[in-house]
Amino acid sequence: MTVARDACWGPAQVHALAVREAFEAITASGFLVTLEEPDLPLHAPEGESKDLARRRKQEGDLSVWRGDPYLLLPEASQLVDVCVSIREDLGFSMLYDLAGCDLSADAANLQIVYGFLNLSRKQRLVLLTEVAKDQLHLPSVAKVFPAADWHEREASEMYGLIFDGHPDPRALLLPEDWEGFPLRKDYVFPEEYGGIPWA
């Protein structure tokens, strides 16, 4: 398969096609996912890019967005089965990234993003799922993709997520006794740690 070059930051159209194909295949297997696609053009129209976002914000239109299309999996409990399907049926053999995301302190949910890479077809696929902040449990995919092991440990200490079935759920980057989840938007910076003042 030849790679189409459509922008200086990479083959975005190829990825868009891959996500649409994957959406059809995963839906056909009986999983409930939705396809989310950007509704702003990839390239800014001439002379419009600089203040585009600001203008749209003033007009109260925040629903439009630019960037990569992705799949939204509303039921996080299906995660392991969907990942097996993505790996076995669709051939995305590498999990290149897994990260949490907290959009705002008021948001009810945390988002978790999974990035998959298909080396033979040169495609990427992004899967996003949500977990309520008062629930925080979701299944670990470390058994399907060993690469998820460290990423899940990191997401767990940064967002307080609990990955059920993780083989080694210790803290990775933070000390074991660190309090709070630093990447949450409502995180309060500590005054001191172990007797060492902040400044």
Partner: peptide
């Protein structure tokens, strides 16, 4: 800079492998 609202991932080949940036913007 005030990028348009959205989420974008770009991976580049660094000397050590794929360096990816996954950015989320709300237009501010």
């Amino acid at each position: 800079l005030r990028p348009a609202p959205g989420r974008a991932y770009v991976g580049v080949e660094n000397p050590r492998g794929e360096l990816g940036h996954w950015l989320v913007s709300d237009g501010t």
